[in-house]
Amino acid sequence: MSARVKTIARRGASLQERLYLIEICKGMATSFGHFFRNLLDNSRLAVRHYPEVPPEIPVRWRGRHRLTNHPDGTMKCVACFMCQTNCPAHCITIEAGERLDGRAEKMPRRFQIDLLECIYCGYCVEACPLDAIRMDTGIYSVNGTRRDAFLLDLTALQAGQGAFPEDDYQKGGA
């Protein structure tokens, strides 16, 4: 892809521009135009009325994490530590243990994500060889009054539900 070059004329050389005051007045006229228009009719403000009007979350958007399950309800995660290895914020802590449900040999005994440390980069999702961790819950607002409230444990992660149809997620990727 070749870079497109856009030449921007250098301003500020003419006498009128160097007088500065005239240009200031022009600028102030522009900003006052916005002010006056918005003052007369504030329905045209370029804002989203959050939190009453929630934002539209696209499929690729990285929300709170969840651990996915097989159709029979068993956990997909096999505690390979790829997410923890790749996490640049070191927010994932896994403790592995023996797995006895016959799916694999290994499963996480403890899987904790510290959302206060998480930077929502999505590397864990990229790294997961088994599509076991996803950020498709569509949860964009995580809040709590205690630090513990931001520690997601295995049950909380497994309880998370995807917010999008599976086909859309697969198409959109994450």
């Binding site: 900003s31 002010f35 504030n42």
Partner: peptide, 10 residues
């Protein structure tokens, strides 16, 4: 509020 209206927000 002025800042808001100047910048097209509320």
């Amino acid at each position: 509020r002025g800042a808001g209206f100047f910048q097209d927000r509320s």
